[in-house]
């Protein structure tokens, strides 16, 4: 059985394979972009607001609030990156209820790509916030002895991000596949429902962790002033 949509090749042209991961990613993107476009094309700024616009406003402001809760001073600065992480992962996971759909987040390639984006975004936001010198100085704090550990931590948390998401989503699919052979009618439905919940939680965890990494890199000086405010403690185990 295929446990990765990467292996599901839909089209091949001169050695370039168009696999299901990319196709379903485009589908998710299309859903997100077209849905947003349809609503935001008729935005209202008066008293009467359409319910779709209300829904989008609730989602966007909730993401902003979450970013602000993690500790960012300017949530609007991180909103596009963190919000897109959350919306993409959540939509990709929720669409799993559609028959024939395989979530692209179940592919290690997708999660790795997202983790690499986070890996790159952390120094970028940090440099943008504090300058290159300020960013590089975080690697030798509190002492230069910590430099190798900081580097290892940077790499390991990126890998952890990728594998955590991939494992959770892929395991859901795998468990459903196994349960279909054991108890064909009842358990898969329960597991699908559970999968929806898990998918949303994973989206939330991924986005929040990314924000925590970015935030910690951007304001480590403040963190030294308040040593109890460790962002790592918010990373829930899974």
């Amino acid at each position: 059985m295929d446990i990765s949509p990467d292996a599901w090749v839909l089209y091949e042209w001169r050695g370039l394979q168009l696999n299901a991961t990319i196709v379903f990613t485009w589908a998710v993107m299309a859903v997100l972009v077209l849905g947003s476009r349809a609503v935001t094309a008729r935005l209202s700024e008066g008293e009467t607001v359409s319910r779709w616009q209300v829904m989008l406003e609730v989602i966007v402001s909730a993401i902003r609030d979450q970013i602000a809760e993690v500790g960012a001073d300017r949530p609007g600065r991180y909103l596009p990156f963190i919000g897109t992480l959350f919306l993409f992962i959540a939509t990709a996971n929720v669409l799993a209820v559609v028959p024939g759909y395989q979530p692209p987040t179940g592919s290690l390639s997708t999660t790795a790509a997202l983790a690499i984006c986070v890996l790159v975004a952390v120094p970028l936001f940090s440099i943008g916030e504090r300058g290159i010198g300020g960013y590089l100085r975080t690697y030798v704090q509190p002492t230069p002895l910590m430099l190798p550990f900081n580097l290892v931590g940077e790499a390991s948390r990126t890998i952890a991000l990728a594998v955590r998401l991939y494992g959770n989503v892929m395991s859901g699919t795998v468990i459903v596949g196994i349960l279909i052979s054991v108890a064909p009618f009842f358990f898969p439905v329960v597991m699908q429902v559970l999968g929806l919940l898990t998918g949303l939680i994973q989206a939330y965890i991924f986005a929040i962790l990314a924000m925590v990494y970015i935030g910690s890199a951007s304001r480590s000086r403040r963190r030294t002033e308040r040593p109890t405010d460790s962002p790592e403690t918010t990373a829930t185990g899974d």
Binding site: D6, M29, L32, S36, G83, L87, F88, P104, T110
Partner: peptide
């Protein structure tokens, strides 16, 4: 696929920033 997904993600960020 990883490279394609990175591109996809960045495009999505841009699109959503613009439309959402």
């Amino acid at each position: 696929t990883v490279a394609a997904q990175i591109v996809n993600f960045l495009v999505l960020v841009w699109l959503l920033q613009r439309f959402l």
